[in-house]
Write a protein that binds this DNA or RNA. Structure first.
Lengths: 121, 121
DNA sequence: AAATTGTGTATTCCGTGTATACACAATGTA
DNA sequence: TACATTGTGTATACACGGAATACACAATTT
């Protein structure tokens, strides 16, 4: 499991961790049953507070992406490939709705948005 | 000039104001030379602090969208239709680059993104 | 001169993010 | 059983950004 922290980012650290790990899970890069590093160890390696890591793991738990067992650790939940795809699309779609609201506020049409997307994706 | 403030939004108030007004300018809804309401009056009407309005107006000034004259007021800058379109696309593109980074982190292809866009736009 | 408008500054308050430290609970192992 | 590991909970503290209030100053207009 590889995560990187940007201190210049406007996003809080715990959210950066959450987004990167959830993306890795939903891409299948982290298999079901995979055991996340203990929060203390992760905190040490990332040079952040235990609470910060805890917050990220909590978000993952709340989203149903991991199962937490006191005394054992945190394990990536079980998903069928179909489920994974569905959750991934739901997650992205939710963000996309807020993104498109911004584009719409500038009066952009769907075609214009697709045109710009083709340039940069 | 119509702006609305959401207190439940995660975005700071001054940024909400900035985004809405800049969008209105770049859509041509606010003509060149249009005089923005005085900061004190806007603060009263929107039930926010003078400083909050000031911050928004400052951002508009910094982006070159308005010209501020002490003692007179803040006026929408002069743009040719071409310039307006260019600035609008630049503005949106900048945001879109950060948006697509998120989509990419989940492994979505350009086609997948366009597919989802067609659903919700 | 007085009113209007933008600028600058000082003070205060609140919430969030983050860190440190310590105690407790559940699990696994010697 | 005792100990180490791991997750949980709590208390405290600090920094920062967003926001509000208030007052004084500068430029413009009437």
């Amino acid at each position: 499991m590889i995560v990187t922290i940007s201190n210049t980012s406007e996003k809080p650290i715990y959210q950066q961790l959450y987004e990167q790990i959830s993306a890795q899970i939903l891409k299948g890069e982290l298999e079901s049953g995979y055991c996340l590093p203990p929060i203390r160890q992760a905190a040490l390696e990332l040079h952040v507070s235990v609470i910060t890591v805890k917050k990220a793991w909590e978000e993952l738990e709340r989203s149903g992406l991991i199962n937490t067992v006191t005394g054992k650790g945190c394990f990536v939940a079980e998903f069928s490939p179909d489920e994974m795809l569905r959750i991934r699309n739901e997650t992205v779609l939710k963000q996309m709705e807020s993104d498109t609201a911004y584009y719409k506020s500038f009066g952009l049409t769907l075609d214009e948005v697709i045109g710009l997307l083709n340039k940069i994706y």
